[in-house]
Design a protein around this nucleic acid. Sequence first.
DNA 1: GGTGTCTTC
Length: 705
Amino acid sequence: MPEEAGFPPAKKFRPSAGPPSRAGSCPPGRRAVMLLAAGGGGGGGGRRQQPSLAQPSASPYPEAVEQQRRNLPIFQARGQLLAQLRNLDSAVLIGETGSGKTTQIPQYLYEGGIGRQAIIAVTQPRRVAAISLATRVSDEKRTELGKLVGYTVRFDDVTSDDTKIKFLTDGMLLREAILDSLLRKYSCIILDEAHERTIHTDVLFGVVKAAQKRRKELGKLPLKVIVMSATMDVDLFSQYFNGAPVLYLEGRQHPIQIFYTKQPQHDYLHAALVSVFQIHQEAPSSHDILVFLTGQEEIEAMSKTCRDIAKHLPDGCPSMLVLPLYASLPYAQQLRVFQGAPKGYRKVIISTNIAETSITITGIKYVVDTGMVKAKKYNPDSGLEVLAVQRVSKTQAWQRTGRAGREDSGICYRLYTEDEFEKFEKMTVPEIQRCNLASVMLQLLAMKVPNVLTFDFMSKPSPDHIQAAIAQLELLGALEHRDGQLTLTPMGRKMAAFPLEPKFAKTILLSPKFHCTEEILTIVALLSVDSILYNPPSRRDEVQSVRKKFVSSEGDHLTLLNVYRTFKNTGGNKEWCKENFVNSKNMMLVAEVRAQLRDICIKMSMPILSSRGDTENIRRCLAHSLFMSTAELQPDGSYATTDTHQPVAIHPSSVLFHCKPACVVYTELLFTNKCYMRDLCVVDAEWLYEAAPDFFRKKLRTARN
DNA sequence: GGTGTCTTC
């Protein structure tokens, strides 16, 4: 049994609005309208639902729905809100979880006759949210989903000519902006969950702002922009949208007690373990615990330790149901976190940051926050993506804490001191400053943005960062300089039509030359979703022997192709997936992605040929499109990238892990403990030289220059 | 010699 952690007395606060002193109050010195004091009691109908994995619940009786709408705290502010929003071009709306802003504001606008000339759009960072919100709102309007209220997400468009309120993913609206950068279909665009600052939302900020300005200049239907966020930290939003007024709404979150540790914890895993069992011995068994750790391995190890310790607890202590939770866990196992524990059992959910926003679990009373997260950083100099364990931001810590107060008051144990917390970054660095920008730049160019180098981002990426993306697009033949301006080549325009990273779009577009489009479509689809291969560490030997029959000595791309082909040839079902350690959810997604990519090819009148048994053509095609991502075997048996001589290693998940091919292309470099190449294909150095003689001049070891 | 936080088009 671990020793006691010893927490000093708790602090109280109301979550999602930030620190306690600020909750529900308007920060000074800002033009703002306070719309509502603390909400009254009553049921939480219409509360912001993020059922994620859970299916949306059956719709209640219509009368009940109407009553629930009226009971929402936001209802009392309806008139005032409408009066404000009617006259504003742009507004920033701050509302806590449970304020009902996302379900109600679009309806208020529509009912108030605002934006009826066209469609009111509401964007969401995640698909499930867009779908479940549309379902909820169409229920509330007592209409069939897809008529007045609809949604559009990838692979699924449930809208019609009648649709006036449309929920869609921010990525989807961005796609639409490529076809019409003025977004003429829309009278009003509500950008929800703006505080999450996803790369898509950030690009949309700029696109929507430009469309609004341009439409005004052209005397077209005005575009109303409403930015909705859960945090009080809105200076940026307001300033960016020309000093747009900030409207505050209060929600119905429950109070949460916070405990900090007295001393800094050098071993957050041990501290988490201690806290879990301290809670376990004190709290009633119906109170579930949610623990935030950083990754799969850590979570699996901690789950095992918890189960082992729980077996040897004294009498009178509740039993423990330990449930790991992370994205690559098969769907069926993820679903277990939503099921109630048997009587006398306490659920302890050990999760990555997936439970911060994407998955909402009811019944959590305790949150244990290690204050750590695994996140990606991008170095434009080396083109390296680094995946590292780091401190969360304050915003993230508040988000985690808020997970304890969704149905009732809760308690959050923070495994760091209050002083440490004060030193956390205020906000998570927006994704747009942490990612490779090649896709974003290609999209902006496809929208004919006047100058992508000076695009009006809310948080500007560094010039190096933008330059690196431009350089990558140039290598792919997507760009040309015309009259001192950057524009897309015909190849670049075609690339932008694919919902893919530019290099994968290029791979498809090159494939007809190698008569292997059928195969490349499959390979690109496989590469653009999470791995279809499921590797439970405890069953490693079994996995290896089952997987043998798919392995190609030519690398991972061809191995994955073999898996997909066998899946299809055997009439691919879930049973087969389970037997072969294949993630069936991801496999289904591959089929959908492939179909979408194939449709785009057909629309472009591309011939879709199969290379039959010839794998060399497939490898040549990969060599010609991924030539900027190559590595060669060094005399000492290690590997180094061809262009920058960065030392790299073959990732242990690769089928080539124990092999020593002279020359490979890879699809991704990821720095974790080491710099690993992932998804490798054996190629001939001569092909690379052939593909890009200028790029490789004097670079390749093996090719004759 | 030994392993992938999370989304999305």
